[in-house]
Design a protein around this nucleic acid. Structure first.
Length: 942
RNA sequence: GCCGGGAUGGCGGAACAGGUAGACGCGCAGGACUUAAAAUCCUGUGGGCCGUAAAGCCCGUACGGGUUCGAUUCCCGUUCCCGGUACCA
């Protein structure tokens, strides 16, 4: 073979690696281990897109490099195969999501194998496989069977909790539990019925039932994902969506809040990622205070008071009103008859808005007075109780004490509704213009803390609260317990059944609890989740199963352990395998998982460690976010009032859209060329939108709008790698994706420049083969001569650069270094085996196919490239005799001068000042200062 | 809104502890080979000024300030873009 024929070469080595299981990894301890993991993909129907391989290529390069460096590398791949898109497809087509998912996975594997990744495919996992989710369910059961003991600061089996109840009741117990868990003595405990005891334990388990807010769409009879809600209506169909409380399984992740925070100190993650997790956890130190109601509630309900959490207890004398979330449980009883109409309409309006809308909207001030008052516990002053939708029910206590002089949002609210603003610190500035949150100065208008400073006041206030039993110092977390239920079909069934209204775990022997068949993938007529449709699906033939399924993050919260021992039927993974591989040394994936997947995974990992199943506190030692390869989306613009019964939809070209009220809709980039829409293809692809539609053109064309955004099927902007592999080969794709820029940077996908990388490979090939005039008759050029210093220098520069770059995950500069090296060797007409063979090994992690081919051509045993050693760098070849000094005058380079390597600074200074150009700039005057930085630069200040 | 990230030629990017801004590649322009094309090779290429040329000068790393002998790099402020915001994965 003489011409670089990527198709032939890549097919040959792909087959070779597969047939010889070249990348199979054993759980042996003979070599040091290295575990490199990619965040596994959701197998979408659109196939793998060019964004996915970015991280996979990077991790594959590191994997191959580490193998050359003598490590036993675990580098697996699998699929996060439960999820909404497959379910949506099933709803539309009636085909079971498992079938569609299977097809998508098959395609993904084919695409991944095309790119030449060195995964050990014998370890592949799929979260939707019952053999896998059996263990996801098992972990759920372990969570249900556990509680969090604050004294030992870890999760323990429920048995130790029962033992404590048995001996001491709740006396001396420090547990993470529901707010309303009652206190009792050992005697009272023993006197309880078995059912009462069981009910008590439910308040302590790490997974429990509670009411949580969901997006309820009455018209569709279903719960919607936040993603499926746009502007307060369902994305599909445009039906109204409201916030509704529903009974859900929850995960007590808040028990781990502090450990999740502390653990960040020991991992090698980017500071920004750790910061995001810290902010998500949101630890704040403050106090919980109860404001008693001004009068008892009617109907003997007593005076529960209003509980708030504040980080600024010192501002309590500045409280002039109280703000509750519209969903707060006391709202109905606090509303006076005169205010009822206003409150009711405000509450139902708030129900229509999503949490995010409510938080994001800081411009419009809205709220309503309930008519009731509570009392400031410090001075007994009446405080009016208002509702405002910027207070969220699921957040803290769902109530905020408003201090308009110190908090801008409260200030704006007070101004808008004419509520008083009381200054509380003498250092506060200009309270008429806005709030001043300062802690400086001494308190005024502040009862028992008048004249004190912030640090003096706080203990006084806390003591007062605790003595009166009206509150206490408290650490609060922004993080909430995680909702674990999904009212969906395509997820893991929760291994729970109900007896007399209480949840019980099924027998472990009955795992996996497999998904039952259903006639349709929609909710039942009564609004139950789809599993409610499964006929005769009862535990032991009589008990109702839990009908919700687990969320997408369940399977991904532990999957890295399954790769260690993927076929084990007795345990989620064998103990010796876990003790050998321990945790992930390098984890590469998208930053969009910063707070979801990565936090839940750390939570489950800590739990598994507490229960003795795994050895490490943190699962991912080093973590890198590859930048998102963004899609370039195209849009069509639909005129707003052309939609509806009996109307003809009208689409207007991008240049004319300002003349109409339009809705921008994504259109598939594959039917758009240079931003011009293929209207016929659009009609065929989207009859739901374009049937009978009219198009308003400009210059005879329909021009689409564009936007750079996430590449995803829902945005119709997916470009897949197969066409590139076919045309240029996988080695080119791999090099090109790395050449595109730093791994961690986001960048829009475009193929400008891929030719340059392809040319580089051809040029590299021509160091070995003379393509000649007849491409089939090229000669083998490699000779056995001794390398020259220039050749060795070129080689060792690239050895050094690439080794450093891989350790720093800076692959783009490695590709440049290869190009420079090949350019130099070509100029030197170097065809020497002593140089080229090492270069082949250095390039192998990046371009495995072409290097494997040349490795064999050089006379090495075929397929052994990954088992050789990375060439050793010898600095002696790079030593320079002299240094080129740029000479600056006032910081601007005016000339350069060369000096032998260790010329003394004083000698350099002397010669520089004598230099003609420098003399010209000095204009005869003496220099003010001369800075000589050895081996770097000279700067003369005039 | 809040949290996190980003912005350098026509384009992707380089400059790794503050030391020659634009490596490498694309594109573009000119040239060689060719009947021609493809492929390949060579030369030039941030903007401007002055020149026949060589050389030289000025401006330039989103914008406005600051620190420093020297700033793409550090500090303060602003704008725009991207990710997350708890049921997309």
């Amino acid at each position: 073979m003489s011409e670089y024929n990527h198709r032939e070469i890549e097919r040959k080595w792909r087959d070779y690696w597969e047939n010889n299981q070249t990348y199979r990894t054993e759980n042996i301890a003979g070599k040091p281990k290295y575990y490199i993991l990619d965040m596994f993909p959701y197998p979408s129907g659109a196939g793998l897109h060019v964004g996915h391989p970015l991280g996979y290529i990077a991790s594959d390069i590191v994997t191959r490099y580490k193998r050359l460096k003598g490590f036993n590398v675990l580098h697996p791949m699998g699929f996060d195969s439960f999820g909404l898109p497959a379910e949506q497809y099933a709803i539309q087509t009636g085909v079971h999501p498992a079938i569609n998912t299977e097809q998508n996975i098959t395609r993904y594997i084919e695409q991944l194998k095309n790119i030449g990744f060195s995964y050990d495919w014998s370890r592949e996992v799929r979260t939707s496989d019952p053999k896998f989710y059996k263990w996801t369910q098992w972990i759920f059961m372990e969570l249900f069977r556990s509680w969090y003991n604050r004294k030992t600061d870890r999760a323990e089996p429920v048995e130790t909790l029962l033992a404590h109840f048995e001996q001491h009741g709740t006396e001396g117990l420090e547990a993470v539990c529901d707010e309303e868990a009652p206190a009792f003595t050992a005697g009272e405990w023993k006197a309880m019925s078995e059912r009462e005891q069981y009910e008590i334990t439910l308040k302590y388990r790490l997974t429990y039932l509670a009411d949580a807010v969901v997006n309820w769409c009455p018209a569709l009879g279903t719960v919607l994902a936040n993603d499926e809600v746009k502007d307060g209506v369902s994305e599909r169909g445009g039906y109204p969506v409201e916030q509704k409380l529903m009974r859900q399984w929850m995960m007590r992740i808040t028990a781990y809040a502090d450990r999740l925070l502390r653990g960040l100190e020991e991992v090698d993650w980017s500071e920004s990622l750790k910061e995001q997790q810290r902010n998500w956890i949101g630890k704040s130190t403050g106090a919980e205070v109860t404001f008693p109601l001004a009068q008892d509630l009617e109907g003997g309900a007593g005076n529960p008071g209003i509980k708030v959490f504040t980080t600024r207890l010192d501002t309590i004398y500045g409280v002039t009103f109280m703000v509750l979330a519209p969903e707060h449980e006391l709202v109905p009883s606090l509303t006076t008859p005169e205010q009822k109409a206003a409150v009711d309409s405000y509450v139902s309006a708030a129900r229509m808005r999503s949490e995010r809308d409510r938080m994001a909207d800081a411009k419009t001030v809205s709220g309503v007075f309930t008519g009731s008052y509570c009392l400031n516990p410090f001075n007994g002053q009446p405080v009016p109780i208002w509702l405002a939708d910027y207070v969220l029910a699921g957040y803290g206590t769902g109530a905020v004490m408003a201090v308009p002089s110190g908090d801008q949002r409260d200030w704006t609210f007070a101004r808008h509704f004419n509520l008083p603003i009381i200054p509380i610190l003498d250092a506060q500035q200009d309270i008429d213009q806005g709030a001043d949150p300062t802690k400086e100065g001494r308190y005024v208008n502040s009862g028992i803390i008048d004249g004190l400073t912030f640090s003096e006041a706080l203990p006084v206030l806390i003591r007062f609260l605790e003595e009166k039993g009206l509150g206490k110092a408290k650490i609060n977390y922004r993080m909430r317990d995680a909702v674990f239920s999904r009212q969906r079909y395509w997820g893991e069934p929760v291994p729970v059944y109900f007896r007399d209204g209480l949840p019980y775990l099924i027998d472990e022997a009955d795992l996996p609890l497999e998904l039952p068949g259903v006639d349709k993938y929609l909710p039942t007529e009564t609004g139950e989740p789809p599993l409610g449709r499964a006929e005769g699906w009862k535990y032991k033939g009589q008990y109702e199963y839990e009908l919700s399924t687990m969320p997408g993050w369940a399977g991904s919260s532990w999957y890295w352990y399954r790769y260690m021992d993927p076929h084990n039927e007795r345990e989620f993974a064998d103990k010796t395998a876990i003790d050998y591989w321990r945790n992930v040394d390098l984890y590469i994936g998208g930053s969009e998982h910063a707070t979801g997947h990565l936090l839940y995974s750390r939570f489950w990992n800590k739990f598994l460690k507490d229960r003795g199943y795994v050895p490490e506190e943190e699962p991912f030692k080093k973590l890198v976010n590859q930048g998102m390869i963004q899609g370039r989306s195209n849009f069509v613009y639909r005129v707003k009032d052309s939609v509806g019964e009996g109307k003809t939809p009208v689409f207007v070209s991008a240049g004319l859209r300002n003349q109409y009220e339009v809705t921008a809709l994504h259109v598939d980039v594959n039917i758009v060329e240079n931003d011009v829409l293929d209207i016929e293809a659009f009609r065929q692809a989207r009859p739901d939108l374009a049937e009978g539609a009219e198009f308003i053109l400009e210059d005879g064309k329909y021009v689409c709008g564009t936007e750079i955004e996430k590449m995803s099927k829902s945005k119709f902007n997916v470009v897949n790698p197969d066409t590139i592999v076919d045309r240029y080969g996988a080695d080119t794709l791999r090099l090109y994706e790395m050449f595109l820029g730093p791994l961690t940077d986001a960048k829009p996908w475009n193929t400008n420049g891929i030719d340059g990388v392809y040319r580089f490979l051809k040029k590299f090939w021509r160091l070995f083969y003379d393509e000649g005039t007849d491409i089939r008759a090229g000669k083998w050029l490699v000779t056995d001569g001794d390398p020259t210093p220039a050749e060795l220098k070129s080689l060792h520069k690239v050895i050094k650069k690439v080794a450093e770059d891989i350790e720093n995950l800076s692959f783009n500069t490695s590709v440049s270094a290869f190009m420079v090296c090949v350019n130099e060797l070509t100029a030197l007409k170097c065809n020497k085996k002593a140089i080229l063979q090492d270069l082949v090994v250095v390039l192998a992690p990046f371009a495995p196919h072409i290097t494997e081919e040349l490795w064999a051509a050089l006379g090495n045993e075929p397929g052994t490239l990954s088992k050789t050693a990375f060439p050793a760098f010898n600095p002696a070849y790079l030593v320079e005799a002299a240094v080129e000094y740029p000479v600056q005058i006032n910081g601007k380079v005016r000339t350069t001068l060369s000096f032998p390597l260790d010329t003394a600074a004083s000698d350099i200074e002397k010669e520089v000042l004598a230099n003609e150009t420098v003399q010209k700039w000095l204009e005869g005057k003496p220099p003010k200062k001369v800075i000589v930085v050895p081996k770097k630069i000279v700067n003369v200040v005039v």
